[in-house]
Amino acid sequence: TFVALYDYESRTETDLSFKKGERLQIVNNTEGDWWLAHSLTTGQTGYIPSNYVAP
């Protein structure tokens, strides 16, 4: 799992909003700078900017 370093507000319907400190499970990280992730807090799935999270 990864932890959010910053808050992120989604800009498209495929993005995932999250708050700093939220735990995220990475589903697919082969898309370059945008990873498909599942929030362990909200249960939602969407794309996140990879530079906003850390292991």
Rank of each mutant, 00 (worst) to 15 (best):
T1H: 12
T1A: 08
T1S: 09
T1C: 11
T1G: 06
F2N: 01
F2E: 01
V3R: 04
A4E: 00
A4C: 07
A4V: 08
A4S: 05
Y6M: 11
Y6Q: 10
D7T: 07
D7H: 05
Y8T: 01
Y8Q: 01
Y8A: 01
E9K: 09
E9L: 10
S10E: 05
S10A: 15
S10Q: 08
R11V: 14
T12V: 11
T14F: 15
T14K: 14
D15A: 10
D15Y: 12
D15L: 07
L16V: 06
S17H: 05
S17Y: 04
F18A: 02
F18L: 07
K20Q: 11
G21M: 02
G21D: 06
G21F: 04
E22S: 02
E22M: 02
E22C: 03
E22N: 04
E22L: 00
R23S: 14
L24N: 00
L24C: 02
L24K: 00
L24E: 01
I26C: 06
I26M: 05
I26V: 11
I26W: 03
V27F: 13
V27G: 05
N28Q: 10
N28W: 11
N29R: 13
T30E: 11
T30H: 12
T30A: 13
T30F: 10
T30P: 09
T30G: 11
E31H: 14
E31G: 14
G32D: 13
G32H: 13
D33P: 12
D33W: 11
D33S: 12
D33E: 13
W34Q: 08
W35S: 03
W35V: 09
L36Y: 12
L36K: 05
L36W: 11
L36I: 09
A37E: 00
A37W: 01
A37G: 05
A37N: 00
A37P: 00
A37Q: 00
H38W: 10
H38A: 08
S39Q: 04
S39F: 02
L40F: 09
L40K: 05
T41G: 07
T41P: 03
T42F: 02
T42H: 03
T42K: 04
T42R: 04
G43L: 07
Q44M: 14
Q44I: 08
Q44S: 09
Q44G: 08
G46F: 02
G46K: 01
G46S: 01
Y47E: 03
I48T: 01
I48R: 00
I48L: 05
I48P: 01
I48F: 03
I48S: 00
P49Y: 06
P49T: 02
P49Q: 06
S50T: 06
N51G: 12
Y52V: 06
Y52P: 02
V53M: 07
V53L: 08
V53N: 03
V53W: 04
V53Q: 02
A54K: 12
A54W: 10
A54V: 14
P55Y: 10
P55G: 07
